[in-house]
Computed example of a mutant assay.
Amino acid sequence: MEISLSSDEVISRIKQLQSGGGLNKKSVKKSDPELMRSALYYFPSWEHAVRNAELL
């Protein structure tokens, strides 16, 4: 499995989604599978990735 986003890029894209209000795991998986794959590579779950983005 090739991961095309860095962990910083994952956080940045999650923050962009937060401003639009669309962080639902199912909708992100459908609309941006690359982001979901990369997030799950760097973080144990989608929820962890979102929480990490909120802290930074």
Rank of each mutant, 00 (worst) to 15 (best):
F43M: 13
A49N: 01
L56N: 15
A39I: 00
R37I: 13
K30Y: 05
L5M: 15
S19M: 05
N24H: 10
F43Y: 15
L17F: 07
S38N: 11
S38K: 05
F43D: 06
S19G: 04
E54F: 07
R51V: 01
S6N: 11
E34T: 06
M1H: 09
G22K: 13
L23G: 07
S12R: 09
P33F: 14
R37A: 12
K30S: 03
S6F: 11
K15T: 12
K15I: 10
V10W: 06
I3W: 08
W46P: 03
L17H: 02
D8C: 07
Q18G: 03
D8N: 11
L40N: 05
K15M: 06
M1V: 14
G22N: 14
S7T: 12
Y42R: 05
E54D: 06
G21I: 08
R13W: 02
S19N: 08
A49I: 01
A49K: 01
P44V: 08
A39W: 00
D32I: 14
R51Q: 00
S6H: 11
G21L: 09
S38H: 12
E2H: 10
P33L: 15
L40Y: 05
S6Y: 11
S31F: 05
K25Y: 14
I3G: 09
G21T: 04
L40E: 07
L35T: 05
L56S: 12
N24I: 01
A49T: 00
S6R: 13
G20D: 10
M36D: 07
L5P: 08
S45K: 11
I14G: 02
N52Q: 03
L23K: 09
I14C: 00
Y42C: 09
P33C: 15
S19C: 01
S19A: 03
W46V: 09
E34D: 13
S19R: 12
Q16W: 05
R37N: 15
V28L: 02
V28C: 03
K15Y: 06
F43P: 10
H48C: 03
E54H: 03
H48A: 04
K30E: 02
D8K: 11
V50C: 13
G22C: 12
K26Y: 13
S27I: 00
Q16S: 06
S12A: 11
S27G: 02
Q16H: 08
K15A: 14
K29S: 04
M36E: 07
K29M: 04
S27W: 03
H48I: 10
Q18K: 04
S31K: 14
L17V: 05
S19Y: 08
I3E: 06
E54P: 02
L40I: 15
I14E: 01
L55K: 15
R13Y: 00
L40T: 10
R51C: 00
L40V: 13
V50Q: 09
E9P: 08
V28Y: 01
E47Y: 05
L5H: 09
L56R: 13
V28T: 03
P33D: 04
L55S: 14
I11H: 01
G20Y: 07
L17A: 02
A39R: 01
G22Q: 10
A39H: 01
V50L: 09
Y41K: 11
E47F: 03
V50G: 08
A39G: 02
S38T: 08
G20N: 05
G20R: 05
A49L: 00
K26V: 15
Y41A: 15
G20M: 10
D32Q: 09
E54K: 03
W46A: 11
D32E: 09
Y42S: 04
G22R: 11
R13P: 04
R37F: 11
N52Y: 13
S12N: 08
